[in-house]
Amino acid sequence: MLGFQDWGVTLAYVGTIVSAVICVVYGIVNWNKPRENEESEINEELEWEKNDPELKEGDI
């Protein structure tokens, strides 16, 4: 198939494209996920910035 000699290489070639397609589809489907945590993530971020002991004064 596809001009290859054996199935081992055919699978590798097709597998390369399929893996990339899986990444694309996953990225699109989950573009805005995980949404349920977004609010807590923002709060956490603010909290973290407030409490970051290694942030120098006047950096925010």
Binding site: I17, A20, C23, Y26, G27, N30, N32, P34, N37, E41
Partner: peptide
Amino acid sequence: KSGHELNRAVLAGGVFIM
């Protein structure tokens, strides 16, 4: 910044490595 940004990065990362 957040979890969904990693999900978005999967899209670009997969195509880039291919």
